[in-house]
Amino acid sequence: MKTFFVLLIRIYQFIRPGIDAMQKTIFGYVPQCKHSPTCSDYAISCIEKYGTMRGLFMGLRRILSCR
């Protein structure tokens, strides 16, 4: 369960630069995020630290806190 979600986030992290490149091509820019570490890194460390459910919840909460 834990490794599954971490793997899922890792896959997202792998394809993200590709999506960025597509956005850059079509729109000329990529909206940048203010968070550091990125939400996905944060979610992974939360999952590893606090378990799957709580970690996912914390990651989601941070994504939603972003405007």
Partner: peptide, 18 residues
């Protein structure tokens, strides 16, 4: 610098729509 991820997701949707 802050745009956030909402514009990012929105743009991605527009990308697919286009």
């Amino acid at each position: 610098p802050a745009a956030g991820c909402l514009p990012y997701i929105l743009q991605f949707v527009v990308l697919i729509a286009l």
